[in-house]
């Protein structure tokens, strides 16, 4: 279903590894992130959790190339990130602010492809296919403001995937949605990821969400922030909102992350 030159016969993407090396970021005298190391292997799903204001969004902006780090570096496949890369797709928390209200849903998804010089008929075909894939086949001609919040975020996901993202960066993408919608979108992303094999870096403050979705959870804490724990989540590729979340291992992972979060040595 994807359109990548680097895809193999099964249609799985071959994302490049992301390596964060001694990354620091300060605003003036205020250090936000200090000497942070982490890596995301090809096809891996990594959640980054941490309390509000810990610098998660700053980290994501450095990862995406939207913001230069003060020191250290981010590399993708060994290539230093100095500006947004074509293989990285961003999904923002504020879907309303990141979709263009003067464009139809279809145009919103197709627009980045126009920037790449894809012909109109072709990019609309691609956009339709992805809208179809995120369950919005009937909404192509609608405007974002005619859609619910959950549907708008589906558009944003379709846009990132149509853009051929091998690495999806998501900044609290479901934070402003109601619980039911959020669960549906979590499963949508997991499903697409299983099928396509893209890497995901998810920033969230929701511990359940972080553990439920990820292969690995990176816990940030401190001012300036560093990685205080990395928890490998060995729950397999198939996840289920009820079965997974009642699995004792899930509860253990969750408690371990939570204990790091609130600063007690629970585990």
């Amino acid at each position: 279903m994807n359109q990548m030159a680097s895809s193999d016969m099964t249609g799985a993407l071959k994302p490049r590894p992301v390596v964060v090396n001694r990354l620091s970021k300060s605003y003036g005298q205020v250090g936000v992130i200090a000497g942070l190391d982490m890596r995301v292997d090809p096809g891996e799903f990594v959640s980054i959790v941490g309390p509000s204001g810990v610098g998660k969004t700053t980290l994501l902006r450095c990862l995406s190339g939207l913001m230069p780090p003060t020191s250290g570096e981010v590399t993708v496949g060994g290539q230093k990130v100095t500006e947004p890369l074509g293989e990285i797709g961003l999904v923002f928390q504020d879907y309303r602010g990141s979709l263009m209200p003067w464009m139809t849903t279809l145009d919103n998804v197709a627009f980045p492809l126009q920037g790449r010089g894809v012909a109109k008929a072709e990019r609309e075909k691609i956009a339709r296919r992805w809208l179809d894939d995120v369950g919005l086949a009937g909404a192509a001609e609608k405007y974002p403001w005619e859609l619910s919040g959950g549907m708008q975020q589906r558009v944003a996901i379709a846009r990132a995937l149509a853009y051929d993202a091998h690495i999806l960066l998501m900044d609290e993408p479901f934070g402003s949605l109601d619980a039911q919608t959020r669960l549906g979108l979590e499963d949508l992303v997991l499903r697409l990821r299983r099928r396509l094999g893209f890497s995901v870096i998810l920033v969230t403050h929701d511990i359940d969400e972080a553990v439920y979705m990820a292969d690995r959870v990176v816990v940030l804490s401190g001012k300036p922030a560093t990685v205080i724990d990395t928890v490998a989540i060995d729950l397999g590729m198939e996840r289920d909102q009820i079965a997974t979340k009642s699995d004792p291992r899930f509860v253990d992972y969750r408690n371990r992350v939570l204990s790091r979060f609130i600063g007690k040595d629970h585990a």
Binding site: R61, S64, L66, E83, P84, G86, I88, G89, L90, F92, S98, F111, P112, G115, R116, R159, Y163
Partner: peptide, 9 residues
């Protein structure tokens, strides 16, 4: 950010 992230010329 969106425009930048999607490398719109």
């Amino acid at each position: 950010d969106t425009v930048k992230a999607f490398r719109i010329p």
